[in-house]
């Protein structure tokens, strides 16, 4: 087990290094941030000064060497935009995204499992058809459109929830609901397919021959066997959300990591972009590890 985690960490570490190199140089290709931060009429001297302070005059390779040396001391550099350590800025935004993802996925998982299982239990029945239609619509709905429609309907017209920002529980309702829709459609379909498979298996036949109640056949015998592919898809969706639900965070002015990254990229705030990528990469690595461990918990035949 520990050797598995070790091997996994090593290979993830190598990918992370590759990612840092790639992002560092790619982001530099977007140009010099000086013009974005100084007033249009700033003197050449002031511009030069800005470049020196932020080390933008040095050759790229030297900038990179300095960056790597700093990272090794856990110093991710200063945000140009906020004039604060980049890591601090990122760690401020990250919990918002983490919570948004956690709350959304929790709701998605519960709803998808219950509805998907019940649909699988009576394939072709009215419930299966209705939920199938809804999930297909959900999986194909564009979230920016749903988000704007949601604001228009529930905030502007009905005034039930605030349009954007944070502060109360009500501020969470719209972002979570919008983020919920697509993964729900997808995961419900996976649960349904996987459950149909499990319910037609031989061990379910045995359970019926034993006189086990249908409820425990679905939720005890079939569900645990059906969970493996579901866990994979949930992990995949979670990775997407941890990267920041860019569209939803931007529309709802939600101060998460997606919004932070977009802002930083537009402002060429390179240090923040890199720090944000590293933090999310670490989070995704941990989550994938968690999923692998979850496999072993769900299925005793899987051992690392």
């Amino acid at each position: 087990m520990s050797s598995f985690i070790g091997r996994r960490s090593l290979s993830s570490g190598i990918s992370l290094i590759g990612l840092i190199v790639l992002i560092f140089f790619l982001s530099r290709l977007t140009g010099d941030p000086t013009g974005l931060y100084l007033p249009l009429d700033a003197s050449l001297e002031a511009r030069d000064n800005f470049r020196v302070v932020h080390g933008l005059n040095d050759p790229l390779i030297q900038q990179f060497g300095r960056y790597v040396a700093d990272i090794l001391q856990l110093d991710f550099g200063e945000s140009i935009r906020k004039a604060r350590p980049a890591l601090e800025v990122v760690l401020e935004a990250f919990p918002w995204t983490l919570w948004l993802a956690a709350v959304t996925l929790f709701c998605v998982t519960i709803a998808a499992i219950v509805i998907g299982s019940l649909a699988a239990f009576n394939v072709g029945g009215p419930f299966d058809r209705l939920s199938g239609m809804l999930s297909l619509a959900a999986a194909s709905a564009p979230d920016f459109w749903i988000a704007i429609l949601g604001i228009f309907l529930f905030s502007v017209n009905l005034g039930w929830v605030p349009t954007s920002g944070t502060g109360t529980v009500w501020h969470w309702v719209l972002p979570v609901s919008v983020l919920f829709i697509r993964p729900f459609g997808l995961i419900m379909q996976v649960v349904r397919g996987s459950m149909i498979n499990a319910l037609s298996s031989a061990y379910v036949k045995t359970a019926r021959a034993k006189g086990v109640k249908e409820r425990s056949i679905i939720f005890v015998h079939a569900l645990r066997n059906a969970m493996l592919p579901v866990v994979t898809v949930i992990g995949d969706q979670a990775a997407g959300m941890l990267n920041g639900a860019v569209v939803v965070e931007t529309i709802f002015g939600f101060p998460g990591i997606g919004k932070l990254m977009i802002d930083s990229i537009l402002q060429r705030d390179f240090t923040v972009v890199l720090a944000a990528i590293m933090v999310t990469a670490l989070a995704i690595f941990l989550m994938n590890l968690l999923i692998d461990l979850l496999y072993a918990v769900l299925d005793p035949r899987i051992r690392y």
Partner: peptide
């Protein structure tokens, strides 16, 4: 009814199958 059949299945009439690996639940 289904519930009545269930009370007989396993209790009064039991069954075993050809391929016991497939017929035992792998995760319990």
């Amino acid at each position: 009814t289904g519930a009545e059949r269930r009370r007989i299945n396993g209790c009064k009439i039991a069954m075993i199958f050809q391929d016991p690996l497939a017929h035992l639940n792998p995760v319990y």
